[in-house]
């Protein structure tokens, strides 16, 4: 049904906790593997996200710690989806729109966005979380079930 195509896929297996020290590429490859298996993105998606991040960094200097929103062109996406990486050991990422300002990122919100995002505006919904320090802390410290609840609340909500 066409209606379902406008939904944003986000399920428990799309949340991955990284307990050990890691790096950006590993986070993206790990999260993308889940989306590829579910046929939500194309196999080239992770490589495209990694390449794009080098040219257009997506670190956001939010409070009380940074987050990032890696994503890529709609052509590598099959279905709107989100995957979340919780980093127990922060990674350094470059701030969006800057040359080399770096921030410590503790949550990676990897976005698979197709063209319908122009109407859906997934990012705008997620921003309710970015802009609320208590929500970010809660996500970093909560179980996957709770994270699912917090994120679904904002992405399912009508504007």
């Amino acid at each position: 049904m066409a209606v379902n195509d406008n939904k944003i896929r986000f399920e428990k297996d799309q949340i991955v906790t990284f307990n050990e020290k890691t790096n950006f590429d590993n986070v993206i490859n790990t999260l993308a593997k889940v989306l590829i298996k579910k046929d939500l993105v194309k196999p080239e998606y992770p490589q495209q996200v990694i390449l794009r991040e080098q040219k257009f960094p997506t670190g956001l200097p939010t409070n009380p710690f940074g987050v990032s929103i890696p994503h890529t062109d709609a052509k590598w996406t099959k279905h709107n989806a989100i995957a979340i990486g919780i980093l127990k050991s922060p990674i350094e990422q470059v701030v969006m729109g800057s040359d080399e300002t770096k921030i410590g990122v503790e949550i990676v919100f990897m976005l698979a966005l197709d063209k319908s995002n122009k109407q859906l505006n997934i990012l705008s919904k997620l921003m309710k979380i970015f802009q609320a320090p208590e929500s970010l802390v809660k996500i970093r410290n909560s179980s996957k079930d709770e994270i699912l609840k917090i994120v679904n609340k904002v992405i399912l909500e009508e504007k």
């Binding site: 995002n117 505006n121 705008s124």
Partner: peptide
């Protein structure tokens, strides 16, 4: 303007 033209620019527009 944003890198993809569909993500952060949509938020900025709104």
């Amino acid at each position: 303007v944003c890198a993809t033209g569909i993500a952060t620019s949509t938020v900025a527009t709104e």
